[in-house]
């Protein structure tokens, strides 16, 4: 009587399925019965206000946080009920680009990108170096292998972070506000990179962002998170046409509307 595996049809459309997720921190309810399906092989952008629980949602997908109630299915496995051992197996399907890239300060670029390879594969050092160079090339960075993270610019750090995220050729890559803190040109470059990478590596991508410009560039599907639930979900065209006042206000950046700015 295993609870962790559900039998579903073989022609599955969804890579990640969030069912009725509730999560509070103390008195504050962050996720309130959230449901969301994330399509296989597509990029889904989750938008929402700052501090609206987007990061919390992302952390649930990769099991860094556990829901108070509800289930998170990744590739049909309920990761909320897994122990650490099982969770680590699931996490090998993931790559993640953190907001500030979260490169290890104590290692150079080579060490950072090679880290998951050295950790989880028995590849020879030469082979690992080859893969690292290949990944760095894929993100448009070559010749920085021996630099330390502190010597890199913000955009370069993000690229290295992405190279590290795709080092193991994962099925899913999560992006935590990939364009925050970058100038418009760099923002565009990173967006392009996400699109390219998604295509080249055949990835399922989940991007959380509040940068309106980026949303329509990278997203195949867009989901709006508001007050702990997904209030709107659909293609970029559908989102653009939406009459939902919350979404309208968010996209136009107006102060007038249901979203209160203290």
């Amino acid at each position: 009587m295993f609870l962790t595996r559900n039998t579903q049809p073989v022609t599955r459309k969804y890579m990640i399925k969030l069912v009725d997720i509730h999560k509070s921190f103390g008195q504050q309810k962050v996720l309130d019965g959230l449901n969301l399906d994330i399509e296989d092989g597509k990029t889904t952008v989750i938008i929402g206000g700052s501090g609206g629980g987007k990061s919390v949602l992302l952390k649930h997908i990769i099991g860094l946080l556990k829901p108070d109630s509800g289930q998170v299915f990744v590739d049909d496995i309920d990761i909320a009920s897994l122990n650490d051992k099982g969770l680590n197996e699931v996490r090998k399907k993931f790559g993640m680009l953190f907001q500030e890239a979260a490169l290890f300060d104590s290692m150079n670029v080579m060490g950072n990108v090679a880290f998951p390879l050295r950790e989880h594969t028995r590849k020879k050092e030469k082979e690992i170096r080859e893969i690292v160079r290949e990944r760095l090339k894929a993100v448009g960075l070559l010749g920085v292998e021996n630099k330390m993270p502190s010597e890199l610019s913000g955009g370069m750090r993000k690229r290295v972070g992405l190279a590290r995220a795709i080092a193991m050729h994962p099925q899913i890559v999560l992006f935590d506000e990939p364009t925050t803190g970058l100038d418009p040109v760099m923002t565009e470059a990173i967006n392009e990179l996400i699109v390219e990478t998604q295509k080249n590596f055949d990835l399922t991508c989940v991007v959380i962002s509040h940068d309106v410009q980026s949303i329509f560039t990278v997203g195949h599907k867009i989901a709006m998170l508001y007050k702990g639930r997904i209030i709107e979900y659909g293609t970029p065209e559908k989102i653009k046409m939406s009459s939902n006042p919350v979404l309208r206000q968010f996209l136009s950046g107006s102060l007038e509307g249901p979203i209160s700015v203290i």
């Binding site: 990769i62 680590n88 996490r91 090998k92 790559g95 953190f98 907001q99 500030e100 979260a102 290890f104």
Partner: peptide, 18 residues
């Protein structure tokens, strides 16, 4: 502490490294 606040520790978890 720095690794924690710059999400490097989360990065370790995500890469299935304890």
């Amino acid at each position: 502490g720095t690794m924690r606040v710059t999400e490097q520790i989360d990065a370790l978890y995500v890469m299935a490294a304890n």
